[in-house]
Design a protein around this nucleic acid. Structure first.
Lengths: 197, 197
DNA sequence: CCTTCAGGTTAACGACCGCTAACCTCCCTG
DNA sequence: CAGGGAGGTTAGCGGTCGTTAACCTGAAGG
């Protein structure tokens, strides 16, 4: 992972603020003027960077889904036939990092999907589906007795568990990031273990 | 539980359809004309039954939170000092019933809270908080080693797990309601057990 | 039979919102 | 030192939305 050191571009600033605002008040609840104000320019200036408000949401959601899937595939590749248990732990860890570091995106990800144009929505759904299937395959290697429909339900449910981070109160009321991550990780494994029994 | 046999009132019809539409497209994404059309009257006719669009959302969210809390309190009272394990199972079962039978309400419940007037939002949050604390107390009886902050995080996370039902595909792709409920129940217990270890 | 009222209707107003048009101003480059 | 494009600005248009106003109607009650 090459850590970025250069300053964020204006486009990236806009996307970040838009994500925060969309997560706080919903896509329809935020005006373009507010998004502009959040980055120090005003309203129509955004159209120098994006074709429209819809395009911002689309780029955010496609980006999230793609990032999750890419990270998941990378972890599978790095494991390469090794211990499935360790691979499952790796997937869980990656998802938790994302859920803790990009809370607004996690919120958007399963909340505003229906506001997308048909083609974008199909793309996002396809990426999400591939990500789920990747987890399902790994899960069924760890728990061979688990049938596919049950495995898929279990994966969706654990996503619900891991994505609950936005409800956990603002950073500070928590017992520290590492402890929270560890708790979530244990609970996810416990839930999977119970599903596989 | 006295099962209702009389026909639903117009108010109830409106609330039900509004809940469905809000869950599908978001509060700001639904117009009053659509809500009216869903119950066979048109737009402004709704104002004979509600003070405004906001009032519908408020009544829905207060109703949900109150219903969950009331049901939880009833189960605690029925247990009355008995087996904490059985009480925890009872709470989980009640929450699962709600999540499976009223999916649109579950969706709204943690998605549109910020669209409420300040007073209504405070009321809903207070009801939600009481419900969480009720779970936390029971959970700490079952797992005495669990500290309060961790227990609260665990409860929120299990709510995320149980409330994932809207993502589980429409009824029919599932292996039957009873099997789904049983799976969710096992996973919730597994997650709690892992948190308590 | 007349009144009343609950529960509708349509028309229209005012606010807001996404987006475009037209214009301005640096800064880079040949 | 021209000039041109990147990245802003404000004004304003067109459509939508929540809400109100004014009117209608059928059924119940004295």
């Amino acid at each position: 992972m090459a850590t970025r050191t250069d300053a964020p571009t204006r486009r990236e600033q806009i996307l970040k603020e838009a994500a925060r605002l969309f997560a706080e008040r919903g896509f329809h609840g935020v005006g373009v003027d507010e998004i502009g104000a959040a980055v120090g320019i005003s309203g129509p200036g955004l159209y120098r960077h994006f074709a429209g408000k819809d395009a911002m949401l689309a780029e955010l959601l496609v980006g999230i889904s793609g990032q999750l899937l890419t990270g998941g595939k990378r972890r599978v590749a790095e494991s390469d036939g090794g211990d499935p248990e360790a691979l499952l732990d790796s997937l869980i860890e990656g998802h938790i990092d994302f859920a803790l570091d990009d809370r607004p995106l996690i919120t958007l990800h399963d909340r505003e999907l229906d506001r997308l144009r048909d083609s974008d929505r199909k793309l996002v759904r396809q990426l999400q589906r591939q990500y789920v299937e990747l987890w399902v395959e790994v899960l069924r290697e760890v728990y061979p007795g688990l049938l596919e429909p049950a495995a898929r339900s279990a994966v969706h449910s654990v996503f619900g568990l891991l994505n609950s981070t936005p409800h956990l109160g603002r950073p500070g009321s928590l017992p520290g990031r590492a402890a929270t991550a560890a708790l979530l990780h244990r609970m996810a494994r416990g839930a999977f273990a119970a599903a596989g029994a």
